[in-house]
Amino acid sequence: MAVCAAIVGKDNSPKFFCCVNPDEELAFQFKVLSSLDIIEEKLNPTNKSASDNRELYLGQLYSLETCKIYGYVTNTKIKFIIVVDSTNMALRDNEIRSMFRRMHSEYADMVSNPFYIPGEAITSKMFDANIKSIITGTV
């Protein structure tokens, strides 16, 4: 069960942010922002290990004392980030991957919505609810 999910656009600005616990949102925002540095590093074409990785899933970006941050970047340069609490040992890599895939599906649906203009923040309540249920595993 993840505690926070974020969708960051091509220009590195947040398009969507949700936390299971709204009090922690600010702290998580800081953490997600700093994880963008690592994502950039991984996507950097001069980085040798980066070009070998053909997967959209980037794996664990870095670990913090209280949480672990995972990243996933689509071909359209949209970044998905999931934050998992470190005490949660049950969540395995496969499950995180599938969470990302579901998030990607949701996002693709959102982009197909003609009322949503790509590049703007996502304000749909249904989207919020769907993402929350994906990360809390209640799908």
């Binding site: 053909r54 689509t74 071909n75 359209t76 599906s105 693709a108 982009v111 197909s112 003609p114």
Partner: peptide
């Protein structure tokens, strides 16, 4: 343009990262 922009998100979902 608008159509292509939106649909590409869905169509590249399963593809690996473009080199």
């Amino acid at each position: 343009f608008s159509t292509g922009y939106r649909i590409i998100e869905r169509l590249t979902k399963e593809m690996p990262r473009f080199k």
